[in-house]
């Protein structure tokens, strides 16, 4: 009896403060958001009118912009998640080999992650608009002469490039830690059995780093679905809203169009979607994990 009480006290001592802030910062705003999604609040007025489900009705019947941004974000997520994981894994795979500049390279690849996304976006905006133009004038390669960020396609790929640049380093670190944990004896045994590098990668390394893949996919999916800062600083959704992510569409609805209610309704729908997708992903990749 006494022991149980002690345990409760300890739990409360360690988890309590975090739980309190979690409730204050996440749960309360979330519940408030649910409430506002059923009102027509404009974000300023002192009175809030209850409108029931009409925001959701507008959302499903009369808001093509939202669905366009949804399609954009989905496309971006598919492309971004695959590429950022491949790049992160390739970096990790190369940098677990005994290279001379290994540690420096690891630092360099991780560096973009330390710089904030907003800043990176502005730096890359300059590179795309000014830098690429200068390279084009020097080399005449048509790749650099494209209207970067000026049409939907280059805008899309511009954001993908910066996203990979920003996040690949972080995933690389996770993959590195997982790769160095692949047991030496299995690798040796495979070598003795005459497996080549490709076979080893496919049949030993990849299955054994599946737990890392689960984490990395989860992170990449939630990052790319919620993309906002790079999007804002790089294209601001332009040209003509073709690169507007869902997060940005929600922000604009709530703060620019002053339709806070509709904005929170979108946010709620968005939350449910992202939660379902990531849950499915974690289930699927978890089932692929093996133990050595």
């Amino acid at each position: 009896m006494k022991k149980r009480k002690m345990e409760w006290g300890l739990q409360a001592f360690f988890v309590g403060p975090v739980f309190l802030f979690f409730v204050l910062i996440l749960i309360v705003p979330f519940l408030l958001g649910m409430y506002y999604s059923l009102t027509d609040w404009n974000g300023i007025a002192k009175t809030v009118n209850w409108v029931g489900l009409s925001n959701f009705k507008t959302l499903f019947t009369d808001d093509t912009g939202f669905w366009q941004s949804f399609i954009f974000t989905t496309k971006f997520t598919v492309v971004g998640v695959v590429l950022v994981n491949i790049v992160g894994f390739v970096f990790a795979y190369l940098l677990t080999n005994a290279l001379k500049l290994r540690n420096i390279m690891r630092t360099v690849f991780f560096m973009p992650n330390v710089i904030g996304g907003l800043l990176l976006g502005f730096i890359w905006q300059f590179i795309f608009i000014k830098g690429f133009d200068t390279i084009y004038k020097l080399t005449d390669w048509s790749f650099f002469g494209l209207a970067w960020l000026g049409d939907p396609t280059t805008g899309f790929w511009g954001i993908v490039i910066v996203f990979i640049w920003h996040q690949a380093g972080y995933l690389m670190v996770i993959y590195i830690s997982s790769l160095t944990n692949v047991p030496k004896e299995i690798v040796e045994a495979a070598e003795i059995d005459g497996a080549n590098r490709w076979q080893m990668l496919r049949s030993i390394t990849i299955p054994l780093v599946m737990p890392a893949v689960t984490i990395c996919l989860f992170l990449a999916i939630s990052w790319s679905f919620k993309i906002f800062d790079i999007n804002l600083s790089l294209t601001a959704g332009g040209p003509y809203k073709s690169t507007e992510s869902v997060a940005m569409n929600i922000y604009n609805e709530a703060f620019q169009n002053n339709r806070y209610g509709l904005g929170t309704a979108k946010a709620l729908l968005f939350f449910v979607t992202v939660a379902i997708i990531t849950l499915i992903q974690v289930r699927v990749t978890k089932s692929k994990e093996v133990e050595a």
């Binding site: 608009i129 209207a147 960020l149 000026g150 049409d151 332009g238 040209p239």
Partner: peptide, 10 residues
């Protein structure tokens, strides 16, 4: 050229 990628400063 490329007016849609030309920003204010440029």
């Amino acid at each position: 050229k490329n007016p849609l990628t030309t920003d204010h400063n440029t």
